[in-house]
């Protein structure tokens, strides 16, 4: 086994561990951490794939760079929503099921 294969397998490991964590944890910060690390797992796979041939492939590197920027944007927004949710409801996790909103006043 070449070292590249180690990293490819490692990426799969991170991906499934984080997928599991994302589903079982209710706390918003855990979920966001899991999503972010899942992204890193995909990036690691791409980086490993780039290293297979004779030449190092710059295309996956550019994809990963784009992906890192997208990931930090998504994480920042998710954390902001989590904070706002906490300020409004005082909890940092989602209810098991979204309760039907029976409040009287609606704006449309």
């Amino acid at each position: 086994m070449s070292p590249v294969t180690f990293y490819l397998l490692s990426s799969v490991g991170i991906f499934v561990v984080c997928l599991y964590g994302l589903i079982v944890h209710a706390h918003l910060i855990r979920k966001i951490l899991a999503l972010n690390m899942m992204g890193s797992a995909v990036f690691l796979l791409l980086t490993g794939v780039a290293r297979r041939g004779e030449l190092t492939d710059p295309v996956p590197h550019a994809m990963v760079l784009t992906g890192i920027v997208v990931a930090v944007s998504a994480t920042a927004f998710a954390l902001a929503v989590a904070r706002r949710l906490y300020e409004e409801c005082g909890r940092a996790y989602l209810p098991e099921e979204d309760p039907e909103d029976l409040s009287e006043e609606r704006e449309g």
Partner: peptide, 22 residues
């Protein structure tokens, strides 16, 4: 929309859409 219900469902929607993209 800033009601609690909207924020909760927006948060869940964000998780779903990010997971789908990943």
């Amino acid at each position: 929309e800033r009601r609690q219900s909207a924020l909760s469902s927006g948060m869940r929607y964000l998780f779903v859409t990010l997971l789908g993209s990943l």
